[in-house]
Design a protein around this nucleic acid. Sequence first.
DNA 1: GCAGAAGAGGAAAGAGAGTC
DNA 2: GACTCTCTTTCCTCTTCTGC
Length: 397
Amino acid sequence: MSALTLANNEYDYLDTPLGSVPRIFDEFWTAKQRQMHSLHYSNSYRASFKPELPDFFISKFTKKGDVVGDPFGGRGTTALQAALSGRVALSNDVNPLSERIAYPKLHPVTVEEIEKRLEKINLKKDVDMSVEEDMSMFYHPETYKEIINLKNYLKTHRDDVDRFIEMIALSRLHGHSTGFFSAYSFPQISIPKYRQQKINETRQEMPDYREIKSRIIKKAKDTLKSGQLETLNANSKKHIFTTGDARNLTGWEDNSVNLVVTSPPFLNQVDYVQDTWIENWFCGIAREEVDGKIVQTPNLSEWSQFISDVLSDLHRVLVPGGIVAMEVGEVKYQGKILNLDEIVLGLTCSRSHNMHQFKVNEIYVQSQQFTKLANCFNVSNNKKGTNTNRILVMERM
DNA sequence: GCAGAAGAGGAAAGAGAGTC
DNA sequence: GACTCTCTTTCCTCTTCTGC
């Protein structure tokens, strides 16, 4: 495979045994932050693309009423954008936490409903804290009591208002500003207890009291400020959320999906279980439920097989002519920069992977000046980090 | 204009590997 | 063992955007 750069630097071509594939470099959507619906910004999540990305492909490849899926649903960016655009959403993720975060966004309630519900929940109730996990490095004892009361309440109360409150609470569990429940911590990932203790020691701070009810309401107002609740609620019963392996999308019917917009894990760059342990604890998701199920492929051949298996099942669920827009990045692997779009393109031409079921029509590379993407990918960005979104557009044959 | 919120982020110290 | 280079981990900073 070789890249032939054109004079204007806007395209190159990747030669494959099945013909050359154009790769288009441009800023297809804005690099600015938070330009889309406020519900998209209700949760920090370690690995997520901007909502502009699914919006671009949903507008390009589907019409109202079509079905749009994401087998690596994460915080539900594709599903929410599909629902906001009048499409039906299918969202899957192996981590049960994903559904806890994504479902409420597609089934929103009003701020008034949230306020009324919170009034009814006694968060000040005395509880036996001796049986609870030690989270003193994150929370003031009074804050922690309120969190435990909310956690206990949510075990048995699961209507859409409760689930929306849970989703908002999940976004407030740790962070570095006063709107969060915790002492100064990392907003994006759950750090281990010993690291939080070190932060507290360095800053010479102890967790101060953070009343949680007002913080939930404030964040809920912010999350719901963009409106469009009637658009979301119009199709709310049609959307489907599944929790399982992306290689076997149980619950997704054959020949039912018009478009898939997704981003798989990049090899083993992110430890999704470790990085969400506080959220999983709050939801009562046991480590055994996720440990070993989230695929972390340390080498390229395992990752390639994993992607092939995922595409195989996507072939089953897509309608003929349906499209997969798969976003990947560049990672450092064995000392070299690896453009994963080229790896996936190679797979679609590989006899050993039996991947002639898809034809790569083009590859979009979103380039932008302002990128503050993950250092965890160990790639030189403008200086460090992942600098581009690389999206393969694959047609189901 | 200012304060708060958010980010597939960033700098630097520490650990490990390679070479002599 | 000493030195150098590279990779990994730790622990927050800085830039941008939004709302008042």
